[in-house]
Design a protein around this nucleic acid. Structure first.
Length: 818
DNA sequence: GACCTGCTGCGGTGTG
């Protein structure tokens, strides 16, 4: 029988003038054979058809006689996407397929954009295919009688699973699946993922108990894509600064690239740099005006949609953007991609490179623009990664009790949950497999009584136990809960609008409060004058002034991935051994020579420590090349341990390559190194003592409080002020900290600090590696090329711009004397 | 006038 339906698939493909890829045919067969699985395929490979097709084929096989006329068959398939924008393309593919196969199927999209009317229609007559997000799926689970809605479901597909699994949104998908597996015992679970380092873990996280209990397949689309990495280098090394992040010295070269290419995407690492680059490019190349646009996460959806559309139509010559264009709509006309600044990770760089050269067989070409000299090593490292097929892991979140708590209230809001069933279900997930009976009882107790510390307050007795079922009875609680479903907690921001009311995007409260009416700032590629701030809206008008301040946003600080770190250390080792071949490394030769002459160039077997004195005091600089988070931990650890030898205080600075300890008194560094200041003995204890883990946990707790539902973020259009949110979540933190140390949400905050802030596992590996290396301590007469960027970063944080420039100038003069 | 750090994603009243 399956042979017959496969013929339908092939016929459909040839009717389109296509030939199926082997991986597509493989997944059709695997699906029809009955198991779950994971398709490992890049974007643009027809991955959607690899699963949509067999879902429909199976339906045809099940109803061979009347599949063309059977209407309202019920919800057959759910397609989860991490980004609403992707649903359009999935819908398009599905439409094509449905029409071609003559199925009377309806497609539903359920997301924040779906109207109330449409939602009601979907509920009464479920579409056969539902495209939705993890959040909207949970909203469905929060509605009464949901089991009926899902009863015909055959398959859930988690698209871009690699994106979801590394976040709490992935945990949401796991939880929703745990419920659906009971509602529909024959459910199949499939994921689609780009290649990541830990594919098997990705599969386990997605399948949960199915991983051990049911058959599954892993299908790999081995499609070869050629990627060419070209470094943009200044004419001479002297032109390149030793420190910095903007990379604007290479502006002219980037403009040349744009001029010579049909369409170029210019990726920057931050939103403010996107703004600056856009502005500078227009200044230098005014002919690009009207042909160039900007795209980042704080620009209004409307403007972003316009940019995406123009890009799609091939009407733009260049777009300056951030990760906001990493995923989402496919822009075939993009010919060239430029990456400004170190990409920090292999996967991110390749994803961006893949935005160009979309035609089959075409080469993806990406230009790398370094922002300081040493960053050029990263280009060489990436090239190596491509050859060796190195990719990063995505770490799934484990035991995120905040998400679990939200989920339990979701179930309680709709039809209630029976504790034993639900416990068994959640233990079948990857995230909560290890939940103990005690922890489970703590959760139930917290939901029904507000735990030990909040039991006096009715507000926190959200859930009641009735005839063995946990329910939310209070309608106000239910409503507030539906409004707060989701795990993305945003910072407070202010809307930017023209006086006419046209919405431009969001800006941080912090930035705007430091401006007065009449001041000019540069945002969304325009010069704007602040007119007034009213009701959390910054009202602006166009300004003719040439310059203005550029907003900055408080965002995540991505450290160098461990894969990148290792590749960089390898590249340095090649230089030490004299076997380097990348042109970037050749170009940097004079810089390496100076490093060698003044200090030491560390190979794979060395760990470099520099100690010197300057006008500022005594500096110890170490170079683990492990990314800034790990350096934050090691720096605090070393500072703490040195202070055990003799009372001393430090100021600490770090970048992705190393860290600096600065003191106004001599640092007993030799003695410290002899006493194993970098050892792993008592690591956990010393870390706890050295970093202010309570303060870090307090910050993490803000999100946990919001996700678990302890604090309410406000009604739509009426957000609770950030200051208020901040203080109430702090209040909870303090209460739990003082009176309820075993509180699972509190403990989670500390665990998140260890896992994601200090990256404990990686830190430990780094220290183990260092223990095997030979410590090379040098006493450079002056700061070395490696030290310089770290020192400059430290000064930036402390001093005003003007002073920094004086300082840098002074430092630079000193170098020239050598 | 020189100098500019810090990504992305979702959701926003259901029920009788």
């Amino acid at each position: 029988m399956s042979v017959e339906v496969l013929k339908i698939a092939k016929d459909w493909f040839s009717a389109q003038g296509w030939r199926p890829f082997p991986f597509q045919e493989e997944s059709w067969q695997a699906y029809l054979d009955g198991g779950s699985g994971l398709v490992n395929a890049p974007t643009g490979s027809g991955k959607t058809y690899s699963l949509l097709m067999p879902v429909m084929l199976e339906y045809i096989r099940r109803h061979p006689d009347d599949y063309k006329t059977r209407r309202n068959a019920g919800l057959q398939a759910i397609w989860i996407t991490p980004i609403r924008a992707l649903s359009k393309e999935i819908e398009l593919s599905a439409r094509r397929l449905i029409d071609g196969l003559e199925l009377p199927w309806r497609i539903g999209v359920r997301s924040g954009d779906t109207s109330t009317k449409e939602r009601a229609a979907q509920r009464s007559k479920p579409p056969e295919l539902l495209i939705t997000t993890p959040e909207s799926l949970h909203l469905l689970l929060a509605s009464k009688g949901y089991a009926d809605f899902f009863k015909e479901l055959k398959i859930l597909v988690a698209d871009e699973w690699h994106e979801l699994m590394g976040s709490k949104r992935g945990v949401q998908v796991e939880l929703a699946l745990s419920r659906l597996k009971t509602v529909v015992p024959a459910l199949k679970v499939w994921g689609i993922s780009a290649t990541i380092g830990n594919m098997d873990e990705a599969l386990q996280a997605l399948l949960g108990n199915y991983y051990h209990e049911r058959p599954y397949s892993v299908i790999r689309a081995d499609l070869h894509k050629e990627i060419e990495v070209i470094s943009v280098m200044p004419d001479t090394l002297e032109r390149m600064p030793w420190a910095g992040h903007l990379g604007i010295v290479l502006l002219e070269k980037v403009i040349e690239i744009v001029r010579n290419s049909k369409t170029t995407l210019i990726f920057t690492n931050t939103r403010s740099f996107a703004e600056i680059w856009y502005q500078k490019m227009l200044d230098k190349a005014p002919e690009l005006s009207g042909l160039m646009a900007m795209h980042h996460g704080s620009i209004s959806q409307e403007l972003r949609n316009w940019v995406e559309e123009q890009l799609h139509l091939g009407k733009l010559k260049a777009v300056v953007c951030t990760s906001s264009l990493d995923l989402g709509v496919d822009f075939r006309p993009v010919e060239t991609v430029v990456q400004v600044g170190g990409p920090k990770g292999v996967a991110r760089f390749l994803q961006r490179a893949g935005r160009s050269g979309h035609q089959p067989g075409a080469v993806s070409r990406i230009y790398f623009v370094p922002t300081h000299s040493l960053e050029l090593i990263e280009a060489a490292a990436i090239r190596e990664a491509i050859v060796r097929k190195v990719v990063e892991d995505r770490l799934p979140y484990l035991r995120s009790f905040d998400v679990l708590m939200q989920y339990l209230v979701t179930l309680a809001v709709s039809d209630g949950f029976e504790p034993d069933t639900t416990l068994a279900e959640i233990r079948g997930t990857f995230s909560f497999g290890s939940v103990t009976d005690d922890e489970w009882h703590w959760m139930l107790n917290f939901l029904t009584h507000g735990g030990d510390s909040l039991q006096a307050y009715d507000e926190y007795r959200k859930v009641v136990l009735q005839n063995g079922i946990y329910r939310v009875e209070n309608r106000a609680i239910a409503m507030r809960h539906r409004l707060s479903i989701g795990t993305i907690v945003s910072d407070s921001s202010m809307h930017v609008k023209f006086l006419s009311g046209k919405y431009l995007g969001t800006i941080e409260e912090y930035f705007i409060t430091r401006m007065s009416p009449g001041d000019v700032f540069w945002f969304a590629g325009r010069n704007l004058e602040l007119v007034r701030v009213k009701d959390m809206v910054a009202q602006v008008r166009k300004s003719n002034k040439k310059s203005g301040r550029v907003p900055s946003w408080q965002g995540g600080r991505m450290p160098l991935s461990s894969q990148m770190s290792e590749l960089i250390r390898n590249k340095l080792d090649e230089v030490v051994r004299g076997v380097e071949h990348d042109e970037e490394l050749t170009f940097l030769k004079p810089l390496f020579d100076l490093q060698r002459q003044r200090s030491h160039l560390p190979g794979a077997g060395d760990f470099l420590v520099e100690y010197f004195e300057s006008d500022e005091g005594y500096h110890v600089i170490m170079y683990p090349f492990e990314g800034r988070f790990v350096h934050e931990g090691i720096a605090a650890l070393v500072a703490y341990r040195i202070a055990q030898i003799q009372p001393i205080t430090f100021s600490i600075a770090m970048n992705d390559y190393g860290f600096e300890l600065l003191s106004d008194q001599p640092i007993p560094i030799e003695e410290a190194l002899e006493t194993d200041v970098l050892g792993t003995t008592d690591l956990l204890k010393d870390i706890q003592a050295s970093v202010n883990s309570t303060e870090m946990a307090r910050r993490k707790f803000r999100d946990i409080a919001a996700i678990s539902g302890l604090v309410f973020k406000g009604y739509p259009g009426k957000p609770v002020k950030d200051r208020h949110l901040q203080s109430s979540s702090q209040l909870f933190f303090n209460v739990f900290h003082d009176y309820e140390g075993h509180n699972l949400l509190l403990r989670q905050a500390y665990e998140e600090v260890m896992d994601f802030q200090l990256e404990e596992a990686r830190l430990r590996r780094a220290l183990d590696r260092i223990a095997r290396q030979k410590i090379m301590i040098t006493y450079p007469p002056k700061p070395t090329p490696f030290a310089f960027p770290i020192m400059v970063d430290r000064m930036r944080e402390k001093l005003t711009t003007e002073k920094i420039e004086d300082r840098i100038r002074k430092m630079v003069v000193e170098y020239d004397e050598s």
